[in-house]
Design a protein around this nucleic acid. Structure first.
Lengths: 263, 263
DNA sequence: GATGCTAAATGAACGTCATTCATTTAGTGC
DNA sequence: GCACTAAATGAATGACGTTCATTTAGCATC
């Protein structure tokens, strides 16, 4: 009964990784590194579970954090978060499950890598160019869009110390700078961002909710006000009701916070 | 690394259950029913795991949904959500784990029972008495307070069809009625409630976040704006920073929605 | 009053999953 | 050449949710 997410086009867009974070240094030692790298990315449907490579340290490292992150993302978009098991992840990388633990300390650590990768897709380009309210609007919509496809990460990111996620920290820096440049009072900036983020996370869940979530069923007779209000909303025929609620709340927050700025 | 919740005084308040839902009819047949009932409520730290009762249907039913709900709540406040396993729940009720499945269909079903019980503690008493904004304020604060202690339920309640949770539906009815009585446009009511709820759920996570969540650590030098803003907030010495963000966002939402009312 | 039906318990077993540990092998620094 | 560490395999472990066969109790029906 846990949430199964369909393949998301957004997640598939995260294919363009530059050159990893650090570890890639060892690839210069010998030419045998190349096939190892292609194995990390290309051979996802290898038929032999783990029969070719014998025990012991291989000449070129098979795994690194960047490769694990990409494989996890691909697995999630193919099978959803229920399909993301350490065994499945290992199989998609053509290694034994225990090999993963040389690079990550736990499954939560994998989720953290995924989270920090996804944050890069959040659009902060509006800050520093154009008006403040448009920047907030663009940021919030894209933020919600990304995590609506990855709601199982929300409980993690919501309480995650930023020191553990450099890309997430970079996003906060960009947003904070944008608030400051727009004349937002410094002592209220973090609180405002936290409030906007809380709204974004909660709204991300709404996107994935079933269409009939507000159908009271047999109890409709006992909830006349609620049922009537649901009908009134349905009569408006919005393609995505969650968008209406998100827009309504976001505009209220933007208007309210806008009034706090000095200019 | 999953969330461990400390014992909450709120959860302990759910002790007063009336008399179960239905099944209690059979207790009139014989006097042996009494010890069985006291076993459900009183003997929580029974030393014998399940040795006294022999196989087969007992004279008086040992389990019912209300008893399972209360036991789950007690277990959660003692051991947190990590401690809520079907085996532990069964042990606290002095039954075999498989016996639970005669009354609930899955562990998620147990969580749904808990959720619907907790919603009763949300304060909707402001609606129908006093001004609209005060009612929303009281509702939102109490809603956040309850679920801050039960964040693992948020992914469930956020996408839960209301027909499956009668108490939750009752809450929506009360809030919707309050909005209508205050002149809120009917076609926007559900969207406004959904937006407020999204904010509440997201904010509930913030309450449980570690105090040093915004400590950038070694990366502080690369994030001057963010680090400075964090320091400015810290200088204000608020006892609970999450409350400041919640208040800031909630007041903006209330103000924004207030402007939509007809009066 | 025997017979069947269903509800509600036990106890054994299963399958999945994250994680650990001993072992093997490859490269690096002294 | 030698110790040390990194990175892989493979086997094993321990939870945990769930299912299934079995047993027993009460109720309804003929």
């Amino acid at each position: 009964m846990n949430d199964v997410h369909l393949a998301s086009t957004i997640a598939a867009a995260g294919r363009d990784r530059k050159c990893a974070d650090g570890i890639m240094l060892e690839t210069m030692t010998e030419g045998a590194a190349m096939p190892a790298v292609s194995a990390t990315q290309g051979r996802s449907a290898g038929k032999d579970p783990a029969a070719r490579r014998r025990a012991g340290r291989p000449s070129a490292a098979v795994l690194d954090k960047a490769g694990i992150t990409v494989a996890a993302l691909a697995l999630i978009s193919r099978k959803g978060y229920d399909g993301l098991t350490m065994a499945a992840l290992a199989r998609s990388l053509d290694v034994a499950p225990s090999a993963l633990y040389n690079h990550v300390s736990s499954k939560d650590d994998v989720l953290l890598l995924v989270e920090d990768h996804l944050v890069e897709m959040v659009d902060v380009s509006g800050f520093g160019a154009g008006p403040w309210d448009a920047a907030v609007r663009r940021w919030a919509w894209s933020y919600r869009e990304v995590f609506a496809q990855h709601t199982p990460l929300i409980p993690i990111i919501a309480v995650l110390p930023v020191a553990n996620a450099p890309k997430t920290l970079a996003m906060y820096e960009a947003v904070t700078a944008g608030f400051g440049a727009a004349g937002f009072p410094a002592e209220k900036t973090i609180s405002a961002i936290v409030a906007l983020e809380a709204f974004v996370f909660g709204a991300a869940y709404d996107v994935t909710a079933p269409a009939d979530i507000f159908d009271a069923g047999t109890l409709a007779a006992q909830t006349p006000n609620f049922t009537s209000a649901v009908d009134r909303l349905a009569a408006e025929q919005h393609p995505r009701p969650a968008d209406v609620a998100f827009s309504l709340g976001l505009e209220a927050l933007i208007t309210g916070f806008d009034a706090l700025r000095n200019r």
